[in-house]
Computed example of a mutant assay.
Amino acid sequence: MMDTPPPRWRVVANLRYLRALIKRFRITLVLTALLFLGAPPLFQWRCEVPGGEPVGAGKALHHVYFLLFGQPSLDCSNDWMGILLNMLVPPVGIALVVDGVVRFAYLFFAKHKSDKEWIEVIAETLKGHIIVCGAGRVGFRVVDQLRSMGKDVVVVEKKEDAAFVNVLRDEQVPLLIDDIRSPQCLPRLNVKAASAIVCSTDDDLANLNIALDARRLNPNIRVVIRLFDDDLVAKVRDTFKAEALSSSSLAAPAMALAALDPRIVHSFRVCGHLMVVSIFEARTGLPGITVSEIRDRFGTLALSLRRGDKEILHPQGDQRVQAGDLLTLQAEYRDYRQLRAFTGETQPPLWGQHDMAFLPPSGERPTGTG
Rank of each mutant, 00 (worst) to 15 (best):
E120S: 14
G51R: 02
D355G: 11
A162Q: 05
C185Q: 04
Q184R: 11
D99A: 13
V223W: 01
F228S: 15
V30L: 15
E124K: 14
M87T: 11
C199M: 07
A259Q: 06
D170L: 13
A252K: 01
R103N: 13
E243A: 13
S267H: 01
R181P: 00
R263A: 09
W118H: 09
E53A: 15
D335I: 00
L313Y: 00
E124V: 02
L61T: 09
A357F: 01
V276F: 03
V276C: 05
N14C: 12
H112D: 15
A33C: 10
L126Q: 02
Y333S: 10
S267M: 05
V233Q: 10
F280C: 08
S267I: 02
L175K: 05
D3C: 14
L61C: 11
G370R: 05
F25Y: 14
A234K: 08
H63W: 02
P349L: 07
V64G: 06
D355Q: 10
C76H: 01
S77A: 14
P349S: 08
C133L: 10
V138L: 12
M275W: 00
R340N: 14
K235Y: 04
W351R: 11
M87A: 15
F358C: 05
N14P: 02
L85R: 07
I27N: 07
A206F: 02
I197R: 01
V153G: 07
K192N: 12
T290Q: 13
P366G: 06
D229V: 05
V121L: 10
E117K: 15
K111Y: 04
A39H: 03
G70V: 03
D178Q: 10
A282S: 13
R340D: 05
L313K: 13
I221H: 00
D335A: 08
R334D: 14
L186G: 09
L61W: 03
L96M: 07
C133R: 01
L34N: 00
T290G: 15
R237C: 08
F43P: 07
A39I: 13
D335F: 02
I177R: 09
N207P: 12
K23F: 09
F240N: 11
G136F: 11
H273K: 06
H62L: 13
S292A: 15
Q172W: 02
G272S: 11
M2W: 06
D296R: 03
Q316L: 13
N220Q: 12
R24K: 10
A194D: 01
A211M: 12
E293A: 14
A110I: 02
P54Y: 05
E364W: 00
F358Q: 05
L21C: 04
K113L: 14
D238M: 08
V98A: 13
Q330H: 05
L21P: 07
Q172N: 13
I180V: 10
T367H: 11
R147M: 14
W9V: 15
D229R: 13
G150D: 11
L67E: 10
A282T: 04
V64R: 00
L96H: 02
I294S: 07
A331L: 04
V55Q: 06
